[in-house]
Simulated scan of single mutants.
Amino acid sequence: MFRSQVVAEHLPLLRRYARALTGSQASGDAYVGAMLEALLQDPTLLDEQHGARAGLFRLFTRIWNSVSVNGGADEVPTLAPTERRLTNITPLPRQAFLLLSLEGFSEDEAAFVLEVDIAEVRRLSGIAGREMAAEIATDVLIIEDETFIAMDLESLVKNLGHRVIGVARTHADAIALAKTKEPGLILADIQLADGSSGLDAVNELLRVVEVPVVFITAYPERFLTGERPEPAFLISKPFQPAMVSAVASQALFFQRNSRNREPRAAAS
């Protein structure tokens, strides 16, 4: 019998992982949907050797790496052509890096999910780390009202080679700072202490500038329901530095590749 309660418990974080791989809510949810369909047809596909969560991620990975879904075939019409190209440029090393850094799996669990040995997980993660370290440095706007968290984020992004144009503690501060210098990346808390919304501030900024955004919140489950447009890149509080690094690099990765394809798309 299909264990819906087990899936429901772990589905929000699986959807977060899926959108981090694809760069969009629609694509990520399409792959999760394909996994759920496979599980409904054959519940024995869920291997719980390392727990239900790892089993779901393992099954998702099989779907993700399958030719019929990830190769741009017509079997998944909900994926737009542009989104299919995005999925094709996401390598196995990035999966290993995200499993360890974003989802907090142990090396043993990540090896189970990817169906490789621990040595291979370490090798793949190392490749992704070097790739992400080569990302072009950018100007970062931080929207965060908690002083110590803001200081941690500022120190973290500087250590990653980025520049911080400022820390905004309110909606109004964020708009004012963005006017002084256009950010290349935004790290934003969703609910600010003065009652204003980091989400509203970001939406206002996105009307005039195209910039990748990573949202940080203590209540990620509120934004992983599938009932409305949701942030593509989401970090839970409290966070680990490696998680911020991984998600920020993913956001910049997809932004960079999207821009790199624009001249070719215009010429075709």
Rank of each mutant, 00 (worst) to 15 (best):
S155Q: 14
L156V: 01
K158T: 15
K158W: 01
L160E: 12
L160T: 01
G161D: 01
G161C: 10
H162N: 15
H162W: 00
R163P: 00
R163Q: 13
R163N: 12
V164D: 02
V164T: 14
I165T: 02
I165P: 02
G166N: 04
G166W: 02
A168F: 05
R169V: 12
R169W: 03
T170V: 05
H171D: 08
H171V: 02
A174W: 03
A174T: 04
A176G: 00
A176C: 00
A176Q: 13
L177T: 09
A178T: 07
A178W: 06
A178D: 06
K179T: 10
T180K: 15
K181E: 15
K181C: 09
E182T: 15
P183R: 10
P183T: 11
L185Y: 08
L185V: 06
L185T: 04
I186F: 08
L187V: 05
D189V: 01
I190N: 05
Q191L: 13
Q191Y: 13
Q191A: 15
L192Q: 04
A193P: 05
A193E: 14
G195Q: 11
S196L: 10
S196N: 06
S196G: 06
S196W: 09
S197E: 11
G198A: 13
G198V: 01
G198Q: 06
V202E: 07
V202D: 03
V202Y: 02
N203Q: 15
N203T: 07
N203E: 15
L205D: 00
L206C: 09
L206M: 14
L206D: 01
L206V: 02
R207V: 02
R207N: 06
V208Y: 02
V208L: 10
V209N: 10
V209W: 01
E210A: 13
E210F: 06
E210K: 14
E210V: 08
V211S: 02
P212V: 02
P212E: 06
